[in-house]
Design a protein around this nucleic acid. Structure first.
Lengths: 103, 103
DNA sequence: GAACTATTTAGCAAAATAGCTAAGTATATA
DNA sequence: TATATACTTAGCTATTTTGCTAAATAGTTC
């Protein structure tokens, strides 16, 4: 599966999108993430593996914990490239994902 | 299912993403779209229904044909809102989905 | 209205997805 | 080294998704 497919597949699940939201604040241990959801630890672990394989998060071990961190560049690249390929520039400009109007 | 979920589910399939790309040029009849893919007409018809239920395309009848049209605003809104919610402004600005640098 | 064209809907099979529990791996600590 | 903690991997089930063909619907034309 190619990169863009992995990203959009990863984003198709609401739990995974929510995990990304949680990680926006700061990196978190897998267990800490799991504690914020109703579903089981192993299920969250699998969601994290899917997010990681899409390069939307990265992980690192810290002692007994595994810390997950959002990788916003990869998210912005994949999704942004797609948007840019589909939507006329004008539409993107009209939307608030634009950067500041004047620099 | 809510709007954002419908959009991301719709975008999860590569055939559907490609349909959106094809529609970027101009509106097209269902059969004309189907002709560009290997898969059967009924399967394309279902993909179109999914894209429509996510408000990513609209359709209108013209005589014997049903013409599908890209709805880029809905695409930009849903995906853009999500990106804005997850990625720091800085990351979005660095990416080319930003609008022109200076106006 | 009968026949033709364009498209969708129905019904089915195969594959993918997401959930669970149980078992395995890795690190920390007594 | 034994035990505890934190996660992941394996193996299973239920559900959803995607593809197909056949049948139904909508509009056009003779």
């Amino acid at each position: 599966m190619n990169s863009i497919s992995r990203v959009f597949k990863a984003l198709a699940d609401p739990t995974r999108r929510q995990i990304l939201q949680e990680l926006k604040q700061s990196e978190m241990a897998a267990g800490e993430i799991a504690a914020r959801f109703e579903i089981s630890g192993p299920s969250i672990s699998r969601h994290l593996a899917i997010l990681k394989s899409a390069d939307l998060v990265s992980d690192r071990r810290s002692g007994n914990h595994i810390l997950y961190r959002l990788e916003p560049h990869n998210l912005a690249n994949a999704v942004g490239d797609f948007l840019s390929a589909i939507c006329p520039t004008q539409v993107i400009q009209q939307h608030k994902i634009r950067s500041r109007r004047r620099t």
